[in-house]
């Protein structure tokens, strides 16, 4: 057995809880990337994660660092409150599109405006997952949800918000990037972005937000593979991947 070696294992940044996510949902991959990034940067012991409301509400059980659960949309305010009294702690919020782009848009914008030295992990799957598939601010035109059963009508329901583009316009934001986890290449790229965000926070360089294009096979009414394909064909064209702002590289 001496030639058996571990080449891959679950990150120490994750607990032994079974994730509550549906099969095919990419929350699990994103959790793994957050956990691995914190462990690889040796930041886990001084990290406080903020769970929000939505599918990821229970992730205070999934990460193995200190965690605080926040009210719907308020995670950036909770993160602010903590960071101002724990300046050396690493604070991340984990928020979906309903949480951040709808009810919590003010908290997200003002945390960025103050240049809070925190990291927002923003998961955009264009729908409210936990509550059963209602329309989100990021739902695409024509997309059918339980509260846009005839398809989102831009005439009455408006057009989707592009959060990374919006956040990049805020002077206080340091680093904003949109990534995806639909294939291994993009997973690696997404992890690089996350690690950079945590390094920026560690080095006290300010506010970072990483937007993940994610999937919701159950509420989209698709197979896991079908959902990934739909995200590539529909979400990514509307929400282009890339760095929208990086003050550390002079990209504004």
């Amino acid at each position: 057995m001496s030639n058996v070696k571990t080449v891959y294992k679950k990150s120490e940044g994750l607990s032994d809880f079974h994730l509550s996510y549906c099969p095919g949902c990419t929350h699990g991959v994103i959790h793994k990337l957050v956990a691995e990034s914190l462990v690889e940067l040796d930041l886990l012991d001084r990290t406080i994660g903020i769970s929000s409301v939505g599918c990821s509400a229970l992730n205070y059980d999934f990460f193995s660092c200190d965690m605080q659960q926040a009210a719907h949309g308020r995670a950036p305010a909770v993160a602010t409150g903590i960071k101002r009294v724990k300046k050396d702690a690493i604070i991340f919020t984990y928020q979906g599109d309903g949480d951040l782009a709808s009810i919590g848009i003010a908290e997200a914008i003002h945390a960025a405006a103050r240049g809070e030295n925190i990291t927002i992990v923003f998961v955009n799957n264009a729908i409210y997952g936990m509550t059963g598939g209602q329309m989100a601010p990021t739902t695409l035109p024509g997309q059918i949800t339980t509260t846009s059963q005839n398809g989102r009508d831009p005439e009455t329901q408006g057009l989707p918000l592009k959060i990374s583009e919006l956040m990049a316009t805020i002077p206080g934001a340091t680093y904003v990037e949109r990534v995806s986890v639909h294939d291994p290449k993009h997973v690696f790229k997404a992890k690089k972005a996350l690690k950079k965000a945590f390094e920026i926070q560690r080095d006290k360089k300010g506010f970072s937000l990483i937007e993940f294009i994610s999937t919701c096979p159950v509420n989209w009414g698709m197979t896991p593979k079908g959902a990934v394909d739909w995200a590539v064909d529909n979400l990514i064209p509307y929400y282009p991947l890339g760095v929208y702002k990086d003050k550390t590289e002079g990209i504004e």
Binding site: A70, A71, R74, A77, A79, G81, I82, E107, H110
Partner: peptide
């Protein structure tokens, strides 16, 4: 010590919630 003028009462009390959770007198 920390002072933040929040963007709303809602944000302010959630900041209080955060700092209290981290053990601060807030």
């Amino acid at each position: 010590r920390a002072f933040v003028q929040a963007e709303s009462e809602v944000a302010a009390i959630n900041m209080v919630y955060g700092a209290a959770g981290a053990g601060a007198r807030v």
